[in-house]
Design a protein around this nucleic acid. Sequence first.
RNA 1: UGCCGGGUCGUCUAACGGUAGGACAGCGCCCUUUGGAGGCGUUUGCGUAGGUUCGAAUCCUGCCCCGGCAGCCA
Length: 563
Amino acid sequence: MNGSGKPESVDFIREIINEDIKNGKHEGRVHTRFPPEPNGYLHLGHAKSICLNFGIADEYKGQCNLRFDDTNPTKEEVEYVESIQEDVKWLGFDWEDRLFFASDYFDVLYDYAEKLILMGKAFVCDLNADQMREYRGTLTEPGKESPYRNRSIEENLDLFRRMKAGEFPEGSRTLRARIDMASPNINMRDPVIYRIMFAHHHRTGDKWCIYPMYDYAHCISDAQEGITHSICTLEFEDHRPLYDWFLDVLETPHHPQQIEFAKLNVAYTIFSKRRLNELVKRGITSGWDDPAMPSLAGIRRRGYTPEAIRKFATIVGVAKRDTLSDMALLEYCIREDLNKKAQRAMAVLKPLKLIITNYPDGESEELEAVNNPEDPAMGTRKVPFGRELYIERDDFMENPVKGYFRLFPGNEVRLRWAYFVKCNDFRKDPVTGEVTEIYCTYDPESKGGNSSDGRKVKSTIHWVNAGKCISAEVRLYDRLFTVPDPADAEEGKTWIDYINPHVLDIVKDAKLEPFMAGAVPGINYQFERLGYFVADSKDSAPGSPVFNRTVTLKDSWAKLAAK
RNA sequence: UGCCGGGUCGUCUAACGGUAGGACAGCGCCCUUUGGAGGCGUUUGCGUAGGUUCGAAUCCUGCCCCGGCAGCCA
């Protein structure tokens, strides 16, 4: 029950689980698994599945296995089995001692295959790939039975054992289930269950030259592990009859239930492994861990937290219809998390010199600044103040537009944690017309940021001490694409044409408070009034960090100004 | 045009025959030493046409639209 007294609503998967528990199905157990193929890096879409599977296991006091679906050695690599484990752990989940591989079951899988042959439910087929395609029929026409479909059990067994022994060349024969070539479901038209591949496997080495297909391996692997609910994405819906067929025919001790949900899509980015790979290959991004990538490695480096990702997974929910989630939802999650946790700092991205004409030359002082207004326990710090400062170029306007509250000639603003200053004059470059310096007077009575006479200002701006700040490179990341759904390209264009040219803008020489020299990668900061930033884990050096912008702060002035 | 699965605010998601609700986004106001955060308020939706029913988002039928499926990929 929630606070309103209404029953807590659950998604359709948890509804099924609740029903199963009520009916005592699977002895009331809940056991899920996350089954990635180790052929690429994990991305936000996988995170949804991870949170679902591990999350459900947690909620029902069940278990969730991590199982690598490594049935195709030509596509899989150890590099990925390592990065995947790292990503799942980073997200905050634990498979304890239940790390499995489909290849753990190659012997079992093989024995079951002989059993199928013995039952007359599988046969060795000599059709090549092209012929098989012809025999398969089409979406609207039934297929034809293979001429090898009625071989004797003895011949099938002999041939299959010789396939295993390596007597036949790659592609020359397959083992196929004997189901129904006229089935309206193409997956049931005598699907291949073993193919010959003389490939080195990352775990089993050269032991095998025949490898099982996904449909055959997956259901049996689930059954082996006593999985109760095998949660996968919608495109496997058509495979469920086959999943059930294998387990029914083989009479496995367990029969997990496959449940399909709609995978995550997020506007202005893409999750397709193929396309993500192309971004890397073309050099559009620097690699799979580029902070602009939606890979978990990328968003981690970008400064996203596991808490935010988990919250996002919860918020988008789980259902069966295709969706395109709003980027704003993700950004909300990270802002909400970081607002409470991030240490504040002042950073000036586009510096403009501000000189306080009535501040004694050569003087300086340390002012106290609050580290996080949301969390007093985070304490305060000292910020060096002086006669010459840098402020943000955008915080000054020679001719202010309506509604602009920041600095302009004659206007008074507050320098955060410091003093009120009033602009009296400014200087411009005679050639470019660019403002080069502004001259202000400060009110010594307003130290700390409050006037002594109750005088108010409409704006507070950030600043750094020109003589005592540090310089750093700051990388401003934005959305990857210029359109919500780049895969849905208009005539004559491809998704590549929609890459955002400003996905990364680099600020070479930002000015920051001196303590930021000690910024440690992985610790999130809020640069006040700008956004959340994190020191880059690859390109920062001790004492000289490089910062990545995780997300901007909401900017209601920008919205107003755009009108 | 075969089979399977879907269509509820702009977005995501509830409702399980009984007042269409929440979150995000938007808008307005209040508050604010971040034009941040926060508080309050508010606009917007059941694909369509019928049927059953006292009553339909929910059940039935037709239509429309969207997605998936013809790898020895997963």
